[in-house]
Design a protein around this nucleic acid. Sequence first.
RNA 1: UGCGACGUCGUUCAACGGCAGGACGACCGGUUGUUACCCGGUAGACGCUGGUUCGAUCCCAGCCGUCGCAG
Length: 388
Amino acid sequence: MAPGTDRGQATRRAAAVSFRVDATDGAARAGTLVTAHGEIQTPAFMPVGTKATVKSLHPDEVRALGAQVILGNAYHLHFRPGEDVVESLGGIHAFSGWRGPVLTDSGGYQVFSLRDTIRSLDDEGVTFRSVYDGADARFTPEEVAEIQRRLGSDIAMCLDICLPADAPGSEHESAVRLTTLWAERQARAPRAPGQLRFGITQGGTDVELRSRSLDEICALPFDGFALGGLAVGEHKLEMLDCVEWAAPGLPAGLPRYFMGIGDPVGILEVVARGIDMFDCVLPTRTARTGSALTWEGRLNLRNARFRADAGPLDEGCVCPACERFSRAYIRHLVTQDEILGLRLLSLHNLSFVLDLTARARAAIERGTFSAFRQDALARLACVPEEES
RNA sequence: UGCGACGUCGUUCAACGGCAGGACGACCGGUUGUUACCCGGUAGACGCUGGUUCGAUCCCAGCCGUCGCAG
């Protein structure tokens, strides 16, 4: 099948009930995804809350910033506190206090990014050592489906194999093969009531492998599809070229999820290529190491030049950090390792990407996305990668 | 005032009669399905004055300073 051809006949049924495209502008789409805990307007940035918390923030704060859905992680929640505990407390929503939609990652990314902990890998599953206590553990598609069923998330991700970009071709081929094998099994596993399930494609930026993965994964009855294994060390242009042809290769009637992108430019570029959902630790992680995402670019608040800067992190921003705190104060908090510094930067950075994404949606609805993107990239002091 | 100990990057510790090293801090990068983690880079010191020696941060003397004990 040629790149760009719509796949996923088998999944059209699910599309009708859970997802609709509200507007398109070029390849960019504005849509609505219906979940058991509310609707998600796309494009949507999903803050990462690995351990059932967006680090340092109260769920109401996250909601107030405009987040519609957050991530949780099956790997981490399986080991701490255990899906049995979460289930007994009423599921991840009741447990965490976040009442909106939750997407849980399968833990595949954790297992395969912590490569040193892998003991053995076979068609059945993967055996590895837990990062918490070194104990042997084993993930299979059935196991991660069960963990996510008991967590009670709204969207469950498949167990996949995510490799670094520089892994040998033979490993990428094997990753594609096993990811499909596991997806076929996970697609048949029990799930929580109303829980959606997303398939994940692999294959890096290799046209042949990615195309094969698209064919195989999109033939399965999932409620949405993801591009996995990107933004893992490959060149940015190469990644965007891949998204450009691979995103339209995902079923048009279902949500398209780019796993792991969250820098402002990256967000604009994948949305422009037809991506509906994306998550990333970047806004919150860089916040905790003292960086702010702004229209001036990324600022390192530890820099001495902010020592007595009375201005807000980003001019015109209305987030809880910018509304009353100076760069000088936040720099002081950050250099002195005060918790409030991490919180304020986390609030600001999430606000920045959530607001950027919301504006992108509004532009798509108005049919002005192309101009919006050009303007935003220019403001971010970036030259658009290409005209299209 | 006497006796003693000690003076090495901003701080805290090393080493050594022949290129003075680390940690933390500072300064600057990085971070893309998350440890407040972590990674990379840069700058930065032998208290002062003499003496011994081919050569002294090191040995000796004096001075200055710090700390302890005594008064």
